[in-house]
Design a protein around this nucleic acid. Structure first.
Lengths: 242, 242
DNA sequence: GGGTTCGCTTGACGACCGTCATTGAGATGT
DNA sequence: ACATCTCAATGACGGTCGTCAAGCGAACCC
């Protein structure tokens, strides 16, 4: 992995972060106090229960947030893309981390100590409001997820997950018709994201493939091809007959 | 219902709200611009999709936040107690309401226009940080709920719900042993909160009663008696064997 | 008072989905 | 090349839980 964005000013994710409301001087404060780190897939950034010494800003790659149940099974709660800052909640509520963070792809992450963050929050009120918007959006997502888990079938939830994953990775390059992406996560992780088992995911994949809605290929069946995104969307958006 | 707390300074819920960080002058600004309203059970405060003209602060009673699916079934997402402020998310993200709010008990609520809120947020940064803490806590709750829905059985989720409801209404009056409360919501609503059906709730109640863990009595079976709270807790907290 | 409505309960049935076990494919290391 | 490991796929089985239907009680309204 090349050493991209060696500082906050040239960071490719800069405009997507909450820090974009800061002045150059304020940003310099972060840049002087950050600690960069590279993670390989599987490496953990922090664990549930660790106490929070600062926040982590994702520069590149993909970070997964997990919780573990009593038997050691993990639930993948959230995927953090470049530009996202992790740990701000624990920092603000003065509690330990409520989930574990683990790299899912080779990633670059910067650590920013809690003293730095707090002093910035105090001197620039706009920063707090930015984080508040982030939290509000995440809350909306979480409630929608709860809603979906309750009202939709495994098949509909899986279709929705695929649509979200596609949307996330294709963001700009709008192909109106179809899409082909490389899945960043395993069957097991996808299963946990929609509250089911890997077996059910496999079976659901089979059915969707038989109906020509999706195609899984490549190493580990991780290349996803969707000929028509609308057909996929029909699986979780009950068509309105107004 | 008596006309309690006729202004923000004497409001009984004052110290539980985010506004408690405001100066007297700032609080007066709210007091001058608020509009009080009383709601009877079933009355709606706002609907999903309405655009947000300000926030609502619960003074007394109980407000339920719901989402409706395509067939008109409702999912009860959250219970808002006195001191909670509703609508701050929609206000901050400049979107419409993502859920409907409805009184579950006779309630008193104050409306505060968005201009007032925004000017306070600008002039007192501490207010934004308070709301950020609120959002962080709600997010933590939401993620735990997702986690529970996935990993726990209907029985465990229901036991957990009962424990939460008891904890909420008894807050201060700590009886270590048992508890008796009046349930504020119907079977159907309880079912939707834990992602199941009223029938399954009834059957679960039956089993828990047969085992002597809980007792439902009174009008509509809405008086809940729990002889031993620890026994109830065992249903959703797998006892650790170190 | 009788009819209506609404919510709770209970039973029967069955489908969906979770559990367990087996097989196979691909990657990695010696 | 072979062994090993991990992950995906698939089949068999069973249980939980959702669906449908009927019965019941309380509250409400003409």
């Amino acid at each position: 992995m090349p050493a991209i964005g060696t500082n906050c000013f040239t960071c490719q994710a800069r405009h997507r972060t909450e820090w974009c409301v800061l002045s150059d001087d304020e940003l310099r404060l972060i840049d002087d106090n950050r600690v960069g780190r590279e993670l390989l897939p599987g490496e953990v950034l922090f664990n549930e229960g660790d106490d929070c010494r600062g926040v982590y800003c994702v520069e590149s790659g993909l970070i997964g947030l997990r919780k573990y149940d009593a038997e050691g099974n993990s639930i993948l709660l959230h995927l953090s893309m470049p530009g996202e800052t992790l740990g701000y909640r624990a920092l603000l509520t003065d509690t330990d981390f409520k989930a574990s963070a683990e790299a899912l792809e080779p990633s670059r992450v910067c650590f920013i100590g809690h003293r730095t963050v707090r002093s910035l929050l105090e001197q620039n009120p706009a920063l707090g409001l930015r984080f508040l918007k982030r939290a509000s959006n995440e809350l909306e997502e979480a409630e929608e997820k709860i809603f979906h888990n309750v009202t939709l079938s495994v098949r509909a939830r899986f279709a929705h997950l695929l649509a979200v994953l596609i949307d996330r990775t294709l963001s700009e390059t709008d192909e109106t018709a179809g899409a082909e992406i490389r899945l960043p996560i395993s069957r097991t992780d996808m299963a946990s994201m929609i509250g089911t088992t890997p077996e059910s995911v496999s079976r659901t994949i089979r059915k969707l493939e038989d109906e020509g809605i999706v195609r899984f290929s490549g190493a580990g069946g991780r290349t996803l091809t969707v000929p028509d995104l609308d057909t996929l969307a029909n699986e979780f958006e009950p068509q309105e007959y107004l």
